[in-house]
Amino acid sequence: MSAEAPSHTPVLVIRPSLGWRALDLREVWTYRELLGIFVWRDLKVRYRQTFLGALWIVGQPLISMIIFTLLFNRVAHFQAEGGAPYPVFVLSGLLVWNLVANAINRAGNSLIGSSFLISKVYFPRLIIPLSNVVTEIVDFGVAALLLVALMVWYRTLPGITILLLPVAVLIACLMALGVGLWIAALNVEYRDIRVAVPFILQLGMYVTPIVYPLTAIPERYRWLAVLNPMTGIAQTFRASLLRLPVPTTALAWSATAAIVLLVSGGYYFRRMERRFADIL
């Protein structure tokens, strides 16, 4: 690198910013290597040190699946939509729910967890929650192996609707990132939010048809359940695996909600970003 090339010298102007700021995704893109490194670090640490940690990623949904199957299928006699085996039905719901809930939780706490970096070095802060969501996708992939095994066991094959699977996962991730950005930024200023988030997520799982079918909800209240954008995501994810009809309306609503949350979350995050280092 030569010192004499003034025409190519990048010029950086630092001044106080006011109000809303641009998302500046181009800058995030120039820092994509750092994003990759953060993901790599988190995965390495998680999968290296604890064999148990990796086991937990599969074990947690497995145990939940068994309990919910016993409870809702054997005791309460719920039947899965389309006659799918109940364990497969529950596990597929749990996987996509866990993806979203874990990503929201981790992204939401990510800034506080990285305060040692934020106060010492500059990079677009969006990278931090973003890397957490990407890490969760990898965990989701690992846990999905269990679902594959279970589907082979029950000989349930997906149909052509499997093509919708990436769409459902993508919307789930956008939704998780959007909510995660809101919480991460709010968390810096209002510390008591971090206590509420896990509780709300846990409640959320029960008001969303994850461990029970949507058909278990009385018909006249069903529209209420569909208003919950997670319903569309879970239903689409299942439809793609279990040869169920695609819930087009719910899917469109979920996609819209995810994008609104993501864009608003991104702008709110950027607006609060300038204060992170001063507050943390």
């Binding site: 010029v11 102007v13 630092i14 001044r15 106080p16 934020i118 010492k120 300038r274 280092a277």
Partner: peptide, 10 residues
């Protein structure tokens, strides 16, 4: 890492 309250640096 932190923004100035006023002024500018280039």
């Amino acid at each position: 890492i932190t923004e100035p309250s006023s002024g500018q640096a280039t």
